[in-house]
Design a protein around this nucleic acid. Sequence first.
DNA 1: TCTTTGTAATTTTTT
DNA 2: ATTACAAAGA
Length: 787
Amino acid sequence: MVSLLTGEEDDELEPEQPDPSPPPTSPPPTSPPPELNEPQAGAVEHSAGPLLVFAGAGSGKTRVITYRIANLIARERVAPWRILAVTFTNKAAGEMRARLERLCGAELARALWVGTFHATCAKLLRIHGSAIGVQPNFVIYDTADQKAVVSRALKDLGLDEKRYPARAVLAHIHKHKQEGRGPDEAASHSYVDDVALRLYRTYEERLRAANAVDFEDLILLVARLLSDTPEGDKIRRRFDYVLVDEFQDTNATQYRFLRELVRGHKNLCVVGDDDQSIYRWRGADVRNIRYFRRDYPDATVVKLEQNYRSSGRIVAAALGVISRSNEREPKELWTANEPGEFVHVVAARDERDEAAFVVDVVRRARAEGTDLREIAVFYRIHAQSRVLEEAMRAANLPYQIIGGAKFYERAEVKDALAYLRILLNPGSDVDLLRVVNVPPRGIGQTTVDRLTAWATLNETSVFEALARIDEIGDLGPPAKKKLVAFRELLERLRAESEIAPSEMVGRVLSETGYVQALKKEDTAESDARIENLQELASSMQDYEAEAEAAGEAPSLAGFLERVTLVSDVDALPNPDGTGPRDDGRVVLMTVHGAKGLEFEHVLLTGMEEQMFPYKGVDPGQTDELEEERRLAYVAITRARRHLFMTHTQMRQIFGTTRWNRPSRFLGELPNGVAEHRKTAAMTGEMQFGRYVDRGPASESRGQPWRHPQTPREAAPEPGSRYVDHEFFDDRTDPVTDMPLRRGARVTHDRFGDGEVLKAVSVGEPAVVVFFPGWGEKKILARFLKPA
DNA sequence: TCTTTGTAATTTTTT
DNA sequence: ATTACAAAGA
């Protein structure tokens, strides 16, 4: 491939391709593959030009993408290395590649570009970044690193960290970057804006100076390369076809990157589902789907509406929740699957009771022979996981928690990585400052402050300042001596940095005295830290083995990149059984973590107002409620056959007890879909086991359940968008257990006798009471007595 | 320089 | 309830 502009050869990195003559081997399916339905086949066989695929939950999205790629190779004769498939998670990328291997053979699949936005752009940026001043060995700063940069900028600009919290500043900066605005393009309407922009500018300068990029930069810088530099054409010429998964989760910058990338041929296929857009708070913009239609008015639009994953009742439950959403792309999800069993809605007394119920369900399922990895427990926020975890452990059930504190964010691991990154890129101040006194080597805050002040003043890196230490006036001889020793340590390590990455970790940890310091500490915690470091070393060996298997040379840079761009959802096995194998373990995770996964059994916990939808959703914040609703939709549609939704009467969270009513989403389940039960603790009956089956459960509203192929009928009538919570009054409302039903006569010390009108939720049981002569009053239940 | 004490904050987080 | 981070004391 010869660059049209410069006549140069494209340097790099097209992996061992055979010449672009017809691709070898041809396993891809023959004309409309029999196992595809009509819209699926349409999407698969679409050849050139923009394509928009609405893929409902469980509608065979991955299958469509992979078949489409196979089709492009086999029938359209597109060279595999000229196809780019972009996902959001490594796991999705891995799954896609695995499927493609089976479909097209390992050799062809290997040549494809399949990766996350970030990994793909990191790769492109390493190759082409020098055109905008990013050197190939750049490091990727994670959130903590970014925060450190902001903190230092605050200090240097003499700003009050209380008034401008680093976290908030960073959020501000990210918002700009996600929307593609540089510090000079962002508008300012106030002094505070000015300050924020000055910080943004400084932040950018610091990152560039350190040859570092943040997550946003990976995309943004490549987008700029594409639109503003001649190098952009080189990147563009790499790809003939671009496919994007989970398009509803792209942000403005990511969309810009895509648009620029396909500017010539417009062979852009985006697949998404506006109903599953759950990352708005992170900059994702569902409107990109609309923009896509605007930007590519001739785009072919395909809707995949048949759900193959879930039972009829589960699909109906999901529809009941999502159909109340505003601003949806019109579509009708349906299934031909069996109606299946009822969705179980279970009222528990408190979170421990709820956890006990979860354990009970897991035990039963296991007794029936269910593989534990087919069972998932979801919650809205991580804070809910602890009780569940304790219950699982007490019951001796193997489980795995996804998310939460991450391995690579542990202090000792970050320290080790910081050393490694300095070796690669000594200009990275954040890393250097992190470890300058770790383990303690007598370099105090004052010394560090003077050192960085000098570096800032002379517009150089801290590492450079160390090299020119004699020029620094205000450092005393003892301080200088210690700093020189540190510099020599780094130089010694750098001199050895040619050895294998995995050996490098050990070398760093011993020569810096890091492990020694931990051993000396000799506490349970320090032991755990040492173990974590050993795990780091072994993950490095894993990386080397994988890289070699993939035909790449393992490098420190490659490992560090992977560390920053990898999360632990990636470690889950795929629905089709590929991916990492694990002994059967129940998976515990947040609903966000569940997207893209599916399980035979799903337990959705904490279905209470304030918990899910999370927090006080004030009427003004309909956007947030909308997102919670989509989140609930995602959660429900993860289940194939068995879905439990639990809620509690009271729950301890963040140290306080809260009484919450059942989630409005429970009230939105269509008739005939769910059955409502209470745990034994709730009914007060002593039974063996907690999940008490007391004959025919109360089906909600008793009407016969309709076949899911007529989803329109399951949708609510206009005008009844939100089901009133009084639906639960005689069932599971916490207030019900007290003599405070609607209509009950009560007495109050000051207002006298009155009548209960309705229950309200204020953190503890409360009701609205009508007192003759006083009117309606909101009263805490504890201030009332039966009249 | 290290330890203690106090304070505030604690959604969600594919990268 | 827990924890992380910052400021003040030993």
